[in-house]
Design a protein around this nucleic acid. Sequence first.
DNA 1: TATATCAGTTACCTAAAGGAAAGTAAAAGT
DNA 2: ACTTTTACTTTCCTTTAGGTAACTGATATA
Lengths: 114, 114
Amino acid sequence: MSKTNHTECLSAMLPVRDAIDAISGKWKLMILISISSGNNRFREIERSVPKITSKVLAKELKDLEEHHLIKRTVYDESPVLVEYTTTTYSKTLQPVIEVLRNWGINHRKKVIGK
Amino acid sequence: MSKTNHTECLSAMLPVRDAIDAISGKWKLMILISISSGNNRFREIERSVPKITSKVLAKELKDLEEHHLIKRTVYDESPVLVEYTTTTYSKTLQPVIEVLRNWGINHRKKVIGK
DNA sequence: TATATCAGTTACCTAAAGGAAAGTAAAAGT
DNA sequence: ACTTTTACTTTCCTTTAGGTAACTGATATA
């Protein structure tokens, strides 16, 4: 393999790795989908994402916040009200989610469903 | 949240999960990119993917084969020659890779690079 | 008075992912 | 004779992800 080709290959791989690192794991995209579907409270999200536990959800929400993909707002009422919303930035993931969803539908039909 | 909305939310999440499960982890997409860039031998792939070890590569190649995303061909010469090629099916991942790549480039510019 | 809800936290544990280093067998190159 | 290459495998170890279950403190509901 030539050196230019090697460099090209790297420049194709590294951004993909950046993306994977930001949305990695079983939960992040599911949580984002849930929030953008209108589940904004901790318990709502927890109930909407199959099999997730509160511990894992708490951790993933923190990660998503650090990556600027969701916003956590605390309303100081009693009992304390916490709301999670997707950020404007998270909208940039829309094409990613859509393309993954389509691929997933096809993959189940063609490979998993056999 | 309404029941229809809950069902809608699930039907958005589950295919995404299927996709994530198939291409999950730090390595699979990078390996696919490497192979489709012309790295077809084990050592070539190993050298082209930064930081990967032979043990991990061997395992990921098996996974990818099981998911019908690559083909392993053994040419019984001496020394044994093994060639990995992407399958026709793996071409369906092209849009996924492209959208992830673009998002990754932007994400590094906007978030990581700060 | 008892129970449930809210948004989590804490402690403990298992499983899976991943890294480091060495080894293998056969052959080719120096 | 020695090293290198190929395509891995093996062993041992650490790290990360994830699961289970109990608990918090305030408030609302039955």
